[in-house]
């Protein structure tokens, strides 16, 4: 590769590796590094020597990443917050649609009595999904996994302290997410969805053994859970793409 192309590629990699959320600051760094290599000389030999003197790009990008780490973390937290808000909003509408009932007088619509519980369950499912997705993202980092588990356990604890037995919804949600993740490992779409739906039906049935729930309601509740699971997955994937685009958009 000609040395000038190597310089451009090196600058690109350093700017990308610095993970600077602000486009203006990213452009500023790129311009500054371009000026550095321009000052070092325009001949092929000078460019080669400048690359050698510049040092390891991994070290430079890592040092820049440390400088801008709080901006990055802020953007990351904003991404998770936006993802949670959007997913919970979608889940709310799904649950509202599933719990809409015709009133006793047949002239009005009302939400089923179990709607409040359904919302808690849906919120728990969204939270479990987003936490698991972020915590287990490759490359696997145990610090991230531990942090994810701690965040989820803390929310569980707060819910349990606020509402008696509220944490049960979070344990069930974690089970749904684990089964959904296992089912997602299947590559073929029909088999994947059937497997996930089947496992959701089994969990829903198992968690309603003590109350009269009936097979139709079990199937319907599982379908609602699957829809929320799928919508959260779609929202999270969209949020990830936006996040990456924000960090990588070229100057």
């Amino acid at each position: 590769m000609p040395e000038h192309a190597s310089v451009v590629a090196l600058i690109d990699r350093i700017v990308a590796g610095a993970r600077i959320p602000s486009r203006a600051e990213r452009d500023d760094l790129r311009r500054e590094l371009e000026a550095h290599f321009e000052d070092a000389g325009t001949s092929e030999e000078a460019a080669r020597e400048a690359i050698r003197r510049f040092g390891e790009e991994r070290v430079v990008a890592g040092a820049l990443r440390r400088v801008y780490r709080w901006d990055y973390r802020l953007l990351y937290v904003a991404k998770i917050a936006a993802c949670l808000a959007a997913s919970i909003g979608v889940a709310f509408f799904i649950e509202a649609a599933a719990n809409l009932r015709v009133g006793r007088e047949h002239d009005s619509l009302a939400l089923a009595p179990g709607f409040a519980h359904a919302i808690v369950r849906a919120t728990a499912l969204v939270l479990a999904f987003v936490v698991a997705r972020e915590a287990l993202k490759p490359p696997l980092a145990w610090r991230r996994v531990t942090l994810g588990l701690c965040v989820y356990a803390c929310v569980c604890g707060v819910v349990e302290l606020t509402f008696a037995n509220g944490a049960v919804a979070f344990v069930i949600a974690a089970t749904f997410v684990a089964l959904g993740a296992l089912g997602s490992m299947r590559h073929r779409a029909p088999a994947r969805w059937l497997l996930i739906y089947g496992s959701f039906v089994a969990v829903t049935a198992a968690t309603h053994v003590n109350i009269a729930f009936g097979p139709m309601r079990t199937l319907l509740a599982s379908a609602v859970t699957l829809t929320i699971w799928a919508s959260t997955s779609a929202v999270a994937a969209r949020a990830d793409r936006l996040f990456v685009n924000l960090l990588e958009s070229a100057g």
Partner: peptide, 10 residues
């Protein structure tokens, strides 16, 4: 190593 200057400046 010249690259180390820029993180320090920033």
């Amino acid at each position: 190593k010249e690259g180390t200057l820029y993180p320090a400046l920033h």
